[in-house]
Design a protein around this nucleic acid. Structure first.
Lengths: 195, 195
DNA sequence: GTGTCCTGGTGCAAAGATGCACTCATGAAC
DNA sequence: GTTCATGAGTGCATCTTTGCACCAGGACAC
């Protein structure tokens, strides 16, 4: 799905992934403050300078690259697509983002634990979430008009995260079935609960 | 011993080694003519162009980089050093060359089989040996004067190779002891036989 | 013959990795 | 308070890798 066609992109992706994996492992192992960029560089077998070629800072390596919505998809979404149903389209977009952001589930889980283990990382992650939420709210209102209140849009954003989080928990408990099924179950249960 | 101090040299060395290993493996597996540079590049996980950045041609990858005597050592040798005894000094120089040329014994053995399996590789290897022998003969005569006949110098060259070859066989049969001991034994036996 | 692959090999420009010499902030030692 | 050490982060020159267009020669079809 991603551009893994040419060798350059492949290696770049591998290096970024290796750096993040090592950063997470180091954080889980010793704590965020107890490893240096040099340690990370050595662990990932790159030079210290290369770390900063890939990430904007120490925390960014653990958190991974900042999520940014594909402008093309955003345009479709703002125009009312792809399906026309707001919730469905939001979930579709969220699924895409989450999919490409957490290709490896084990690493995602480890990253979660690492972030949860350090207040500073948690704060940064929270800030990031606020940022994308703000952007998302803006798009929802562009799509459905200003009568869709910011509060409602923010609630929608939170709801989506909650649903995915719950689906992830279900998936962890019962890994055999596809994620989509767990997710559908979460949506159904949410509707039941709220009904 | 080699310059493995900085990351650049290390990676360069690793890549060269990986390329040669893959080339040997491919040759052993399918024969020298039945793999392409692209196959090798894919196997070693580098681009086709990189192969030619490291080696001068397809055969050179299997044979490894051309041996070239360290000018500094050669100067010492021509001047009569380091010990003053011809045979001893020749063996010292040869040991150095062989040492840095075949750091991995298994790979050296595999390379030997690969070369032996293809007439063209064998020819090239033989040509290479002739070249260094010619160079060596020149140095011996520079050191000991022109009364040291070329024939005698060539014999010396052959003798050295034979001794190392024999020592390698002994080392393979009895890998526990250090190579130097095997080599000394080979020299002793050679002297006994010729006495 | 003549075209057409296939493969070895080269030139070149762009992208990526590295080493190194900085700066800046922080915190401990004195 | 000053010094000193440590570690984050940056700028830049240099080396390495890659992609791509290209050429040359051999095999093979027609």
């Amino acid at each position: 799905m991603n551009q893994l066609c040419n060798r350059r992109e492949t290696k770049r992706h591998q290096t970024a992934l290796r750096l993040q994996q090592c950063a997470i492992a180091l954080t889980l192992d010793r704590g965020f403050d107890s490893w240096t960029i040099d340690d990370l560089a050595a662990a990932a077998d790159v030079s210290r300078r290369t770390v900063f070629n890939y990430f904007d800072g120490k925390a960014d390596v653990v958190l991974g690259p900042v999520v940014e919505l594909d402008p093309e998809r955003v345009a479709v979404f703002v125009a009312g697509g792809p399906s026309g149903d707001l919730l469905s389209d939001v979930l579709t977009m969220a699924a895409d983002v989450i999919e490409e952001h957490t290709s490896d589930k084990d690493m995602a889980a480890a990253g979660r634990r690492a972030v949860l283990g350090d207040p500073r990382l948690l704060g940064l992650a929270h800030q990031r979430f606020e940022d994308v939420t703000a952007e998302f709210v803006e798009h929802v209102r562009q799509r459905d008009g200003d009568d869709f209140s910011p509060d409602r849009a923010r609630l929608l954003s939170r709801l989506v995260v909650t649903l995915f989080d719950n689906a992830a928990e279900r998936a962890e408990a019962e890994p055999g079935r596809p994620f989509a099924e767990h997710f559908d179950a979460a949506v159904r249960d949410a509707r039941d609960v709220l009904a």
